[in-house]
Computed example of a mutant assay.
Amino acid sequence: MAHPLEDTLLARQITPTAMRLLVLDVLQQHPAAHSLADVEQLLGHVDRITVHRTLKTFTDKGLVHRVEDGSGAAKYALCAPACLPGHHQDLHVHFFCTHCRETSCLPTVAVPVIALPAAYQVHETSLVMKGRCARCAG
């Protein structure tokens, strides 16, 4: 019988291992963007290097994207199914709550296209908004 977590990994050409399945499960169960330390804490006693390598593999294969939210630690969030390795199709705004310090993906809020002078080459675009999330503002 097929396992949805395994199917998700196999669809991205990622070999399912116990750690990869655990990390994917955590990311699916906790939809906010999470740092390496967050994932470790949610998993309990695990090898930090293995978790780091797992997140790197997930990023390289287009399963997750890195979010630099200004908190000092890179965070990781699941990508939309249309994302390809190295070319994310879900270019959206991220929101960092200054109260609870949680970073959320806002997939329905697109990053606007910005026209740059011809000599500039964009390799990555990111937009992080900061304030109070809906839970903390209410």
Rank of each mutant, 00 (worst) to 15 (best):
M1K: 05
M1N: 06
L5F: 13
T8I: 13
L10A: 13
A11N: 02
Q13P: 00
Q13T: 08
P16Q: 07
A18V: 06
A18Y: 13
M19Y: 02
M19K: 12
R20A: 10
R20N: 13
L21C: 14
L22K: 15
L22P: 02
V23Y: 09
L24H: 12
D25F: 05
D25E: 12
D25Q: 12
L27M: 13
Q28R: 15
A33E: 01
H34F: 03
S35V: 07
S35W: 10
S35Y: 11
L36C: 00
L36I: 04
D38F: 01
D38P: 04
D38Q: 06
V39I: 11
L43K: 02
G44P: 07
V46H: 13
D47Y: 09
R48Y: 07
I49Y: 07
I49F: 05
T50S: 11
T50C: 05
L55G: 06
T57K: 09
F58H: 02
K61H: 11
L63F: 04
L63Q: 05
H65K: 05
R66G: 00
R66S: 00
V67P: 02
D69R: 08
D69I: 00
G70P: 02
G70N: 08
S71Q: 05
S71A: 10
A73C: 07
Y76M: 02
A82F: 10
A82N: 09
L84V: 12
L84Y: 07
L84C: 11
G86L: 04
G86I: 01
H87P: 00
H87Q: 01
H87L: 00
D90E: 10
L91M: 12
L91Y: 09
V93W: 09
F96M: 15
C97Q: 00
C97L: 01
C97D: 01
C97H: 00
H99M: 12
C100S: 10
C100A: 08
R101K: 13
E102N: 12
T103A: 07
T103G: 03
T103L: 04
C105R: 13
C105S: 15
P107R: 05
P107K: 05
A110V: 12
A110Q: 13
P112C: 05
V113I: 10
A115W: 10
P117Y: 10
P117F: 11
Y120A: 03
Q121I: 15
Q121G: 06
E124K: 01
T125I: 08
T125K: 00
S126Q: 15
S126R: 15
L127N: 06
L127Y: 11
V128T: 15
M129P: 01
M129C: 14
G131I: 03
R132K: 15
R132L: 15
C133S: 05
A134K: 02
R135Y: 08
A137M: 09
